[in-house]
Amino acid sequence: MLKTWQRCTSCCLGNKHKGDFMHIYAIGDLHLSGEPPTKPMEIFGEHWRGHKEKIRQHWLETVKADDTVIICGDISWAMSLEEAAQDLDWLAQLPGRKLLLRGNHDYWWTSLAKMQKRFGEHFEFLQNGCIMVDNIAVCGTRGWLLPSAEAFSAEDEKIYRREAIRLELSLQAAAKQKPAAIIAAFHYPPLFARTEHTAFTNLLHNYGVQHCLYGHLHGENHISAFEGLREGIRYKLVSCDTQGFQLYKII
């Protein structure tokens, strides 16, 4: 079990970059589907119309080459890696280092070896490990339905426990690096109510995580999810539509 680091993240980065700060951003649920889109997202609301260009415009205005962007799942509606190539190629052309996490609709997501072989030049994939961004550790796992969900079943319990194991593997890898701070990324929210304790939140607390990001929720569904500071961890929903199709700056 890891003790919480109390060092100032900004100062650590500032010392290394001498005032020329590197930034870490996050966004989730891009829901790309080629060009022209095979699944236009405006069927979920007029605010989704042209969402791909909205994301691109803000990304170009915000992200520099040495910045990092964490993408919290549901990246493409594609069913295979080859089908996703158009969306991933579009994403690869945007500036910055890109860390990808699997969402529940990322059916194209395949073995790590296949993804690295095809797209390893452009992306890093968060899966059972951590990725270091300077002295910041980025961890993550997809997550799953929580026991508090009405429809939570015995099969959900198995997947929920498996995802908790994957999160701990990621956090253990981070602990070995002795980072200045830890960022944890999920696709599913790791909690809903401020008072809710889950296998995920317990691990985040035990390993001294400072920032937790998640996606998955859209529209009115996001209202019930907890955002804010709890037990030293800042929780933030980053589904692109809830953020006005803009990236959220973590650090």
Rank of each mutant, 00 (worst) to 15 (best):
L169N: 15
G73D: 07
N15M: 11
G50P: 04
C212V: 08
W59I: 08
K178D: 09
T141H: 01
Y248F: 14
A151M: 02
H187K: 08
D20W: 07
Q172R: 14
R7M: 13
H211T: 07
L145D: 02
M1A: 13
G215D: 00
I165G: 01
Y188P: 01
L2G: 03
H216S: 01
E220A: 15
I159S: 03
Q177P: 00
L99K: 00
Y25I: 06
P37K: 07
E53K: 13
T9M: 14
G244H: 03
V138R: 02
G215C: 07
E168L: 05
T9R: 08
C212T: 13
Q246S: 12
T141G: 08
V133K: 00
K52W: 10
A164S: 06
V138W: 02
F186E: 01
N128K: 09
W109P: 02
K158P: 00
L229A: 08
E124M: 09
C212F: 06
L217M: 15
H211M: 12
R234S: 05
C12N: 11
D66A: 12
L237E: 06
S111H: 05
S224K: 13
G45Y: 06
L88T: 09
R118M: 06
M1P: 09
K39T: 12
G34K: 12
M41W: 07
D156S: 15
H211Y: 14
E150P: 04
E168W: 00
G140H: 01
G14F: 07
G228S: 09
C11M: 11
R49C: 06
K117G: 04
H23N: 15
W59Q: 05
F192W: 10
G228A: 07
R56T: 14
E168A: 03
K16V: 14
Q177K: 13
E150M: 06
G215R: 01
A225R: 09
W5T: 12
I159P: 01
E231V: 00
A199W: 04
D134F: 00
A164Y: 05
A151S: 11
H205Q: 08
T198K: 01
D89V: 10
A137W: 03
G14N: 15
K54M: 14
E150L: 06
R118K: 13
D74C: 12
P190Y: 02
E163M: 04
A84Y: 03
L167D: 10
K98V: 08
L146P: 04
A151D: 04
S33Q: 02
V63F: 08
